[in-house]
Every structure is written in C-alpha cells, then in structure tokens.
Design a protein around this nucleic acid. Structure first.
Lengths: 187, 187
DNA sequence: CCCCTGTGCCTGTAATTCAGACACAGGGGG
DNA sequence: CCCCCTGTGTCTGAATTACAGGCACAGGGG
C-alpha cells in the first residue's frame, strides 16, 4: 500500500507552500488542488498543523534512513540541508511563519542524528565516557543547527551557504581537538 | 477521484519503458516498481497491451483537449509531437516493438485533429465544400503524420526534427494554394 | 446583524486495494 | 522427457480508502 492519495495531499501542500505563506493556505485549497475529497484530508490528517508536522517528521525519518553512515563532513551537512534545499521557498515560508518551531524541531532531530553519527565516525576505535560523548555531540549539534538557522536567516543565499560550509569544515579540527582534550583530562 | 494508483501504474510503466524494450517488461515488474498489488493492476487494466493502448488514448485525448485552438504551424507540429518529445526512449521502444501500430493509431488521431483545426484556421471565413475540406485535411494529415514517422525513423534526431519542421512550414504556402485552387475550380 | 467561507466532525455508502488462492503456459536445466 | 520456476489471468472475500452530504460552530467583513 503506497498511499498515493496521502502523497498527493502532501505534494499539493508543499506546492502551495512554494506559492504563498502557510497562513494563507486552507485545507480547502489543498484538496481542491489535488482533486481529493475534503473528508479524505481529515481521514489522513487531523488538521493543517498536524499535516506539516507529519511532513517534517517523515522527512527527518527518511533522511536518517537514507544516510545510514555519515562518512564525511560533507555528508553531514548535506543530510542536514537536504530537506531545506529541495523546498527552498516552502522552507522559507515555514521559517517565517508561526510554525517556525516545527521546522526547528525537525532540523534539530536531523542535526542530532548527523552529529552523533559523525562524532562516532571520527572517534573510530577510541572510546569516550558517556558524559564526554554527549558533550561533544551536543557541541557539534549546536554548531550545525546554528549554521543552518543562520543560513535561513540570510534567505538561503548560496554564497552564505558556502561560507557556512567552510565554518562547518573548520570545526573538524576542533572536533579532533576536543576528543584529544577529553582523553587527556580523563587519563 | 483523481485515481493516483492508476497514475502510479502508468508512470511506472513509462519509466520502465525508458529503461528497456516493452518485450522485457512484465506486469510483475510494474506492480513491484510502484508497490501496488498485482490484482490492482488487473482491476484497472485487462493486460499489458491494453495498458499501453489506454496510455496512448488518454494522451491523444489530453493533447486534443489542451490544444483547443491551433493558431500556428508551430502549434500544430508541437501538439502532434508532444507525447513523443516527453517520452523519447519510451516512444522509440514502442515504435520498434510489435505494438508499433498502436502508436501509429494514436499519432494518427492527433494528426487528424491538428490538421482539421489548422485547416479551419487558415480557411477563416472562406468556405469549402465538404469534399474539398476533407481532401485538404487528409492531405495535411498525411504530411504531418509522415513527418513524425520519418522523424522516428531517424531515431528522433534533433537536426532531423528541424528539417522536418522546415518541410512542414513550407507546406503552409501549399495549403493556401490548395484552397485557392478548390475555390476557383468550384466557381 | 447577517452572510459567507472555512472548519472539524459525523453517518452511511461506494469504490478501491488487498491477501491468498487457482489452473495454465512457456522455457530452460537436469 | 519431466520437473521446476516464473509469470499470467482469474476468482473470492475481506479490509481499507474515498466519497457525498449533512451538521454546528467560529470569524470576519459588509
């Protein structure tokens, strides 16, 4: 069961989100756009906010599923940016709307995942205490989250993205440094 | 009811048609590609040939519907070529397969429509007898059909298409000439 | 204040999709 | 030649999904 109708509702919503802010989008707009009965919308989703939450959750899960390993810093940032990149205008609308926190929740989940996966990759055989591990993951998570949020602030400017990528990259040495310091302090 | 499942089956078929010849495509391939139960395929289509016939028929109807008026020679050829252009490889597979006649039937329908619409446009206020009208439409229909079939013969070469467009364009003067001759002969 | 649009929900019905079977055809490989 | 395997086309009955048409209610102009 592939549930094409649900996907059609979702696609119409994202499509409309690329055309106008979320505050101006109604359930009626969506079902009329994809030619689905209004009741069918309520069959799948409780209301509009829940549709959006559902979308970002599914996207977060998909991205995490499709990136089982995070091998490089590029992988890391790319995974975190994937949804944003594929829905430029929609993301900006969400970001500037009252539901901004939902997007942040989603981004936060992805950042947590990629930060953990990346730190574990850099660690390799080395072991840290649970506390140190959490500290470093939290650090990287906040950095990547901040990078992406900062990028959104600039209106997703491509040049700004490159600058942020560079900042992100520079953190690589930082990460090694942090791990070293943790190991030395504990020994 | 937008019937997204039917569309998914159709899309998967066209997708597979772009990957391999129709003789190597099974119903199983299609339903597995789009994640639909095999029975659902048979719910919508009798068999594989009927699916293809259905696709070309719907395409022909859609093209005719979306081109209510044929204002220029460009419109005319574009309408007739639309399906072929959007599914290059698929059309070539069909064209070279045993079901070639189905594609020809489809193309024939579209050519008949655009030829009629275009002749009527050129005619404007002028009137012809039913016989003359049919004669001229048939003439243009055969020309445009021949152009497209010839284009397919070359493997849909872009340069060949331009050449064919030119030939088609040259027929414009021809058409005026034909109408003039009909009018003079009847008067 | 009324009208209008949109919401969220309900009931019942119709349409769609499904799982799980069946006999049968064709095509290699042992 | 026979077995095995894949794919076909069909059927049944059940489950799910999509629908039409209704309801009360909220909010915002005119």
């Amino acid at each position: 069961m592939a549930n094409f109708t649900k996907k059609a509702i979702r696609d119409s919503f994202v499509k409309l989100l690329n055309e106008k802010p979320i505050s101006q989008i109604t359930v009626k707009d969506i079902v009329e756009d994809c030619g689905v009965n209004r009741n069918t919308f309520y069959y799948y989703y409780q209301d509009l906010p829940q549709l959006m939450e559902n979308i970002v959750n599914e996207d977060a899960e998909r991205i995490i599923r499709e990136h089982p390993t995070i091998d490089s810093l590029d992988d890391c940032l790319n995974a975190a940016l994937e949804f944003a990149l594929s829905n430029r205008k929609a993301v900006l609308h969400i970001y500037h709307s009252v539901n901004r926190d939902i997007y942040e929740q989603y981004q936060w989940r992805v950042c947590t995942y990629v930060a953990t996966a990346y730190v574990d990759g850099v660690l390799g055989d080395r072991k840290l205490t649970a506390e140190d591990h959490t500290t470093i993951v939290d650090y990287l998570k906040c950095v990547s989250f901040g990078v992406i949020m900062g990028w959104l602030e600039t209106g997703m400017n491509p040049a700004a993205l490159d600058r942020f990528r560079r900042i992100f990259e520079l953190k690589h040495g930082d990460l090694e440094h942090l791990i070293d310091r943790c190991e030395k302090m504990r020994s």
